[in-house]
Deep mutational scan, measured.
Amino acid sequence: MQNSHSGVNQLGGVFVNGRPLPDSTRQKIVELAHSGARPCDISRILQVSNGCVSKILGRYYETGSIRPRAIGGSKPRVATPEVVSKIAQYKRECPSIFAWEIRDRLLSEGVCTNDNIPSVSSINRVLRNLASEKQQMGADGMYDKLRMLNGQTGSWGTRPGWYPGTSVPGQPTQDGCQQQEGGGENTNSISSNGEDSDEAQMRLQLKRKLQRNRTSFTQEQIEALEKEFERTHYPDVFARERLAAKIDLPEARIQVWFSNRRAKWRREEKLRNQRRQASNTPSHIPISSSFSTSVYQPIPQPTTPVSSFTSGSMLGRTDTALTNTYSALPPMPSFTMANNLPMQPPVPSQTSSYSCMLPTSPSVNGRSYDTYTPPHMQTHMNSQPMGTSGTTSTGLISPGVSVPVQVPGSEPDMSQYWPRLQ
């Protein structure tokens, strides 16, 4: 039975679970980093996980050691009161100082060594604690504590007292930064006198190289990059290397530039699409467009005044059976039934097929058609009795279509119309 579990990581490298990497692998990681390889490249070359490479390099940059820390136990506290007071002093002298600059000053002034120097995250935590204590304490208590930490007896009751030896409130920041720059020169002199001055200088240079600022491109470089971006948004590694040799930039910087440029292009394309949609959409909808001609068919113009009344309900007709019959029939052209047409008796099958359309009241044959006459024609229609054979009435077949029909004066039988409509 094995005491430890061995495995293979996602890159194909072998590791022992819970145990640190061998010293030979750690040394190779540092050597590759000094030669300029990126952590992701080191991870692929040595088949070590990216997190492990970053952790080893980060500890090497901070402490200069590649040895693993002790497994188990607690780390001794490195942010001692003396170190905290120095950090507060540096922050007062130059409020814009960075944590890694404070760390360098602690090393250069001999406050800490490589073994007990606090990390950048520890210094940031100390600065946050100082800021929170400043908010919790009152103004007087804060000034007393700062005077105690600074070891001075001057008056701290006013704002300019934060910067000793100065009279203009805006000047101390520059003086403090100048003092810090002077301390940086002392850093070089002190570290050069040490035993491991060369190694420390190499480590600091490598650290500065990794902690780079934003790349500033010249106009020629920007023009070359934009020209390549117009050709393709995704250049391959050969195109990037050719462009890197042409404009004297690292291939990694060119790759990052193209990634950022593609993101910018997507944002601009989104804005262009929004403007295009806004320009195509009308600002207001016309009133006429809300009524579609496919839904509402136009009603033909009436030929006679009587045809303006298109349904039985508008003429005072309360018989719903006839109203439904007229509205359900398709529109037909106007025609006239003459008196000489043969009077065919209704076929029983045809009569039964339209039995649902006729009223059940037996008085329908005896009703006159003056009910369908509009009010303004009552006088004219009353002067001509319906009993004469020459009287013409208008029957409504569908809305908007008038059918003048000659009705025999002897017997106005409704059943004569249905064979004609089939």
Rank of each mutant, 00 (worst) to 15 (best):
Q2Y: 11
S6M: 06
G7R: 04
V8K: 12
V8L: 12
V8D: 03
V8M: 08
V8N: 06
Q10H: 08
L11T: 03
G12F: 02
G13Y: 01
G13D: 03
F15H: 04
F15V: 04
F15Q: 03
F15P: 01
N17G: 04
G18E: 01
P20H: 01
P20G: 01
L21A: 06
P22N: 05
P22W: 01
D23Y: 07
S24K: 13
S24W: 10
T25V: 12
Q27M: 08
Q27H: 15
E31R: 12
A33V: 07
A33I: 04
A37W: 12
R38T: 05
R38A: 05
C40T: 08
S43A: 09
L46Q: 04
Q47K: 03
V48M: 00
V48A: 05
N50M: 15
G51Y: 00
C52I: 02
C52H: 05
V53P: 03
S54I: 15
K55N: 04
I56L: 15
L57A: 00
G58A: 05
Y60G: 02
Y60R: 01
Y60M: 04
Y61T: 12
T63G: 02
G64S: 04
G64K: 13
S65T: 12
I66M: 08
R67F: 15
A70F: 13
G73Q: 00
K75Q: 08
K75Y: 06
P76Y: 04
R77G: 02
V78R: 11
A79M: 09
P81F: 09
E82C: 13
V84S: 08
K86R: 08
A88F: 13
Y90M: 14
Y90P: 01
Y90K: 08
K91G: 00
R92H: 13
R92A: 14
E93R: 12
P95L: 14
S96W: 10
W100F: 09
E101Q: 04
I102V: 02
R103K: 10
R103Y: 05
D104K: 14
R105F: 12
L107A: 07
L107Q: 06
S108N: 11
S108G: 09
S108K: 12
V111R: 14
V111A: 14
C112S: 15
T113N: 10
N114V: 11
D115V: 10
N116P: 10
N116Q: 12
P118G: 08
P118R: 02
S121K: 00
I123S: 01
N124I: 03
V126C: 14
V126F: 06
L127G: 13
L127F: 15
R128C: 00
N129V: 04
L130R: 08
L130A: 08
A131Y: 10
E133L: 11
Q135N: 10
Q135E: 09
Q135V: 14
Q135G: 09
Q136E: 15
M137P: 13
M137D: 15
G138V: 07
G138A: 13
A139Q: 07
D140M: 09
G141P: 07
M142Y: 08
M142E: 09
D144C: 10
D144V: 13
K145Y: 07
L146T: 07
R147H: 13
M148G: 07
L149N: 14
N150L: 04
